[in-house]
Design a binder for these strands. Structure first.
Lengths: 219, 219
DNA sequence: ACCTGAACACCGTTCAAGT
DNA sequence: ACCTGAACACCGTTCAAGT
């Protein structure tokens, strides 16, 4: 009998379709709502509606689940930047600003997911190929933006990769310091987060990246 | 009798001189050796030679101890940068490079202490005035370096504070990405960490910050 | 293959009690 | 004031057992 009922629902697993992804989704949700200190495997299992030991059928341990959550976050980030780049095709300065703004926006809208994504895996990267893949893809995207900006005279000429490292470092540091409240009120109070971002990017650019925006507002 | 023995060792507390600082030191040690995941209040207490409940006489909870460890780390960082600045008095470009190198060095020599220091406190800063104080002091030091560099034509003119935010962001992002293995091998393999730092700083500087160093090597 | 329930070691925190 | 020991709720992980 049991064999027959199994054959009648051939690919339907035990509990519900896709526990692995349900666990990742539950983890992301808890992270957003309760922060990293509230993220426990037992709570994730409870939210997914399974026993506290069930996750071990899909993840070796807690760090493995966190790696999956990080990968999910990095993919979101990549898509956000890629969308920004697509929306400003043919406008390198616009791509630079929009791409960076997407980075800032992701971090501010879901700080804990961002933090886990960019500083949660650390060791044993080789065990998480999907994470490494999206990380490489993202860096390649930054290199692409930098190349277009260099050709348009928006960024200095020179090694694309070195400049990409500088741009990403500048952005990542800016966002991190923002999240950690390390940017003094005297600076933060001077304008919107977006204005502050552009002011910061202007330190590395050869043109005034805020000019287009201000022009648009005036016209 | 008990009153007499207490008067004979008047300022000698119960167990040993200064448990509060002993707990901080124990925490820093565990952090360096076992990483942030190995840092538990119970282990800290054990290492300091007291019961697991004793820390609560000095710290409200675990976050309070972590805040103290962060403050300690930030003070180390401040001293390292201040030393670098002092050693290169009258040489703004040298101060910039040496100050940034001190930052990188602290992060690489004790990654977990660095990470906890710069992204461990987060909430309720107003409850940790010593942390806020050293953070402000550090930012002021960066502003000072920036001012000297602007006067010497090493960094662009403009708002000192905005430029300081950019310099610190660049540095913090660079170090963070380095620690998280987010800088591709194709870039990291091109030279020493110091050479990579200078290449990154050059993206924001008006002069070649590596020139002095290369000149020194040749002469 | 996928999941449950009991079990173990470890953790943060509280509290009555000791000096 | 400073510290101990017992206690509680929660956690990560393992494992025999169930379907």
């Amino acid at each position: 009998v049991s064999r027959l009922s199994r054959e009648s629902r051939p690919r339907q697993p035990y509990h519900h379709g896709d526990l692995k992804n349900a666990l990742i989704a539950a983890g992301v949700e808890i992270l957003s709502k309760e922060g990293v200190s509230g993220l426990s495997l037992r709570k994730v299992a409870l939210r997914a509606g399974v026993s506290h030991a069930a996750p071990y059928a899909h993840f070796a341990d807690k760090p493995a689940l966190i790696a999956a959550i990080s990968t999910e976050g990095f993919e979101r980030l990549y898509r956000a930047i890629a969308d920004a780049v697509a929306k400003h095709a043919g406008d390198p300065a616009g791509q630079l600003v929009a791409g960076c703004w997407a980075y800032v926006n992701f971090a501010l809208s879901d700080p804990d997911h961002f933090k886990v994504t960019l500083s949660g895996v650390v060791e044993k990267e080789e065990e998480h190929p999907a994470f490494v893949a999206v990380s490489k893809k993202s860096f390649a995207l930054v290199v692409e933006i930098v190349r277009a900006c260099q050709a348009a005279g928006v960024l200095r000429p020179g090694s694309e990769e070195s400049t990409a490292v500088a741009v990403w470092s500048l952005m990542h540091g800016f966002v991190s310091l923002l999240l950690e409240n390390q940017i003094p009120r005297s600076v933060r109070g001077r304008g919107s987060t977006r204005a502050l971002l552009i002011e910061t990017l202007n330190q590395i650019a050869l043109v005034d990246l805020g000019a287009a925006e201000r022009g648009r507002r005036k016209s």
